[in-house]
C-alpha cells in the first residue's frame, strides 16, 4: 500500500530523516513511534506531498506520491482543524466536496462517516459546542469521508482523557475492521501496543527498528522483567550479576531481565539475604523494547 524507500530529508544542515524505509500492508495499523522531534510529522508531510524528500522514493499503491495522490490519503492532524461555527454535517459536506466525492454520494458518505465516529446524534451541532473528544472524532470523520486508501492519524489521542482515549481506540479498531490501512503516529507506547500490527521506532530521523511486537521483543532477550524496591540496591545488582541477569533502571526503578519464567517464590529466593521492600514480575512490553533501543541515545518518548 505505502512504501517509503531510503527517504532522507534535511532542513539546512539538520538531517530530519535519514534513509527511512517503511512498508505498510493493506488493512494494517502501522504505529510510528518516536519522541518529539524524532521525525514523525516530517514523515507525514512527505507522505502527503507537503514536502519533497531530498533522496529516496515514496509510493502509494505503486504510484509515486504527488498532488494527484492527495485525494487517496485521509489525514487527521494533531490539532482539530475544523470550522468551529459550522456543524458536523456542514464540515463534512465541505470536505467531501473538495475531496471530490460525487454529489450523489455525498450525503451517504457523510452519514457513514458520522456513524463510524459515533456522532450521528450530534450531526447538526456546531463544532464549538462539542467536547474535545467529540471534536477529535469529527477530525477523524473529515479524514475518512472520502474513503481514503490510507488514513494517517497524527497523535490522535494526545490531550484526551482516559475515557475518550478508550473510545478513540475502539474507533481505530472499527476502521481497521473495515479494511482501512492506517498509519498511526504516537508517543504513547501502550497505544501502539494495543492497536498496531507493525511498529516502527524512530529516533532522530533514523528507524531504529521495525516489525511486529513479537519481533521487536527480541531487543529484550528476557522471559520477563522483575522490578525491585530495596534499600540495598548494590547488593541486589551484585546478586543479579552473579545470576547473569542484566540490570536496568526504568523510570528510576531498579529492574532485572529474567531469562526464564520464575514464580514469585523462586524470584524471592534468588534475592535471599537481601532486604526487599517489594518485588514484581512484568511481561516484556513495548516500553522495555523502546527504552532498550533508545537507551544509548539517552531519550525517551
Amino acid at each position: 500500500m505505502l512504501t517509503l524507500d531510503q527517504v532522507s530529508k534535511s532542513f539546512g544542515d539538520r538531517a530530519v530523516l535519514v534513509d527511512l524505509s517503511l512498508r505498510l500492508e493493506v488493512g494494517e495499523v502501522y504505529g510510528l513511534l518516536g519522541a518529539n522531534g524524532a521525525g514523525k510529522t516530517t514523515t507525514i508531510n512527505l507522505i502527503c506531498n507537503l514536502l519533497r524528500p531530498d533522496r529516496g522514493t515514496i509510493t502509494l499503491g505503486g504510484k509515486p506520491i504527488s498532488d494527484a495522490t492527495k485525494g487517496r490519503i485521509g489525514i487527521a492532524p494533531q490539532e482539530n482543524l475544523l470550522y468551529k461555527s459550522l456543524s458536523c454535517v456542514e464540515n463534512l459536506r465541505f470536505f467531501a466536496a473538495i475531496y471530490g466525492v460525487p454529489r450523489r454520494d455525498r450525503e451517504g458518505r457523510i452519514r457513514e462517516a458520522l456513524a463510524a465516529v459515533n456522532l450521528v446524534e450530534r450531526a447538526d451541532s456546531p463544532v464549538e459546542t462539542l467536547s474535545g473528544g467529540m471534536q477529535r472524532r469529527l477530525n477523524t470523520a473529515v479524514a475518512i469521508v472520502h474513503r481514503p486508501d490510507l488514513l494517517i492519524l497524527d497523535e490522535p489521542t494526545t490531550g484526551l482523557d482516559l475515557e475518550a482515549r478508550h473510545e478513540f481506540w475502539d474507533l481505530i479498531r472499527t476502521l481497521r475492521s473495515r479494511g482501512m490501512t492506517i498509519l498511526l503516529t504516537t508517543h504513547l507506547l501502550d497505544e501502539a501496543e494495543r492497536l498496531c500490527q507493525h511498529i516502527g521506532i524512530l529516533q532522530r530521523g533514523k528507524l531504529l527498528a521495525s516489525g511486529t511486537l513479537a519481533e521487536l521483543r527480541q531487543a529484550v532477550p528476557a522471559a520477563e522483567v522483575a522490578t525491585i524496591e530495596t534499600p540495598d540496591e548494590a547488593a541486589a545488582i551484585a546478586r543479579a550479576e552473579q545470576l547473569n541477569w542484566p540490570t536496568r533502571h526504568y523510570g528510576g526503578q531498579l529492574a532485572f531481565w529474567v531469562p526464564e519464567r520464575l514464580s514469585l517464590a523462586e524470584l524471592l529466593a534468588a534475592f535471599e539475604g537481601i532486604a526487599i521492600d517489594s518485588i514484581a514480575r512484568h511481561p516484556v512490553n513495548l516500553e522495555h523494547v523502546y527504552l532498550e533501543l533508545t537507551r544509548s541515545q539517552g531519550t525517551s518518548p
Binding site: D67, P77, L82, I98, V142
Partner: peptide
C-alpha cells in the same frame, strides 16, 4: 487562526 488553511493545503483543493 483556526488553522483550517493547513487542512485546505493538505486537501487536493
Amino acid at each position: 487562526e483556526q488553522q483550517t488553511l493547513k487542512r485546505l493545503f493538505i486537501a487536493p483543493l
